[in-house]
């Protein structure tokens, strides 16, 4: 038996799509998450609390509400969607929409992890870099960023796992179209709605568990190695 035969073509499609959606969601949101985490950890400004609240909103709102708000604003008739459509950017009922929904839903977790990283870096090291003549941007690139890499990695892993499992906002925003927007959780949900789908659903559940575990193990291993390198134990 060919190992790929273990899952049916539609199930494979869902796994591949989910991996793609979660990867794109994580990578695209990471730079923004680093910027927001830096703002929240290092700057005091009017609207600090508001920004923090806004970032955490998807964590607190029912996912179906987030999905609905996305549909209203990023739908082809929505205020943002109608602006992007002439540029050829369409989110509604596309896999990119699933990535957007997953990115937004995982954003609070990613920001939180990276923010903890920023708070753990001693600003005295950044002062030392400044006295040596480094500009602020260079200090950030060569001192701060390398020191928070473990935190960024942890945030990305958490975001990736969250994106792999995102269901409510995705299905509300982009529906459940096989091959287009049917991610792993959506496929499991759809299979459970059919009387003969139990076995296939179980296989996808196993795949979900394996991917999630692998992501966590890999990220923990990398983070440990980086922490050791920073501490100089190697």
């Amino acid at each position: 038996m060919n190992p790929t035969d273990w899952l049916g073509p539609q199930e494979w499609q869902a796994v591949r799509l989910s991996l793609r959606v979660a990867s794109v969601a994580t990578l695209a949101s990471l730079p923004l998450a680093v910027a927001v985490a830096w703002l929240l950890a290092r700057r005091r400004f009017p609207g600090h609390g508001l920004l923090s609240g806004l970032v955490h909103l998807p964590l607190i709102l029912p996912p179906v509400v987030t999905g609905y708000l996305l549909l209203v604003s990023f739908g082809t008739q929505g205020p943002i969607g109608s602006l992007l459509k002439p540029l050829g950017i369409v989110f509604a009922f596309r896999w990119t929409g699933a990535a957007l929904a997953c990115g937004i839903m995982s954003f609070p977790l990613v920001v939180r992890a990276i923010r903890l990283g920023f708070e753990a870096v001693d600003p005295k090291l950044e002062q030392a870099a400044a006295t040596l003549g480094a500009s602020r941007a260079w200090t950030f690139l060569t001192v701060t960023l390398p020191l928070i890499l473990p935190a960024i990695l942890a945030g990305a892993t958490l975001g990736f796992a969250k994106a792999m499992g995102e269901f409510g906002a995705t299905i509300t925003f982009v529906s459940n179209i096989p091959g287009q927007t049917q991610t792993l959780p959506s496929a499991i949900y759809a299979l459970l709605q059919t009387p003969t789908g139990d076995a296939a659903a179980l296989r996808l559940v196993v795949v979900s568990v394996v991917i999630a575990m692998a992501a966590v193990l890999v990220s923990e291993g990398l983070a440990r190695r980086m922490a050791a390198r920073i501490a100089g134990a190697r």
Partner: peptide, 18 residues
């Protein structure tokens, strides 16, 4: 600080750990 050309040796060294 980066424009002052003043070298600073801190009590706690502050070497870059990475």
């Amino acid at each position: 600080p980066q424009a002052r050309r003043i070298g600073y040796v801190f009590q706690d060294a502050r070497l870059f750990p990475h």
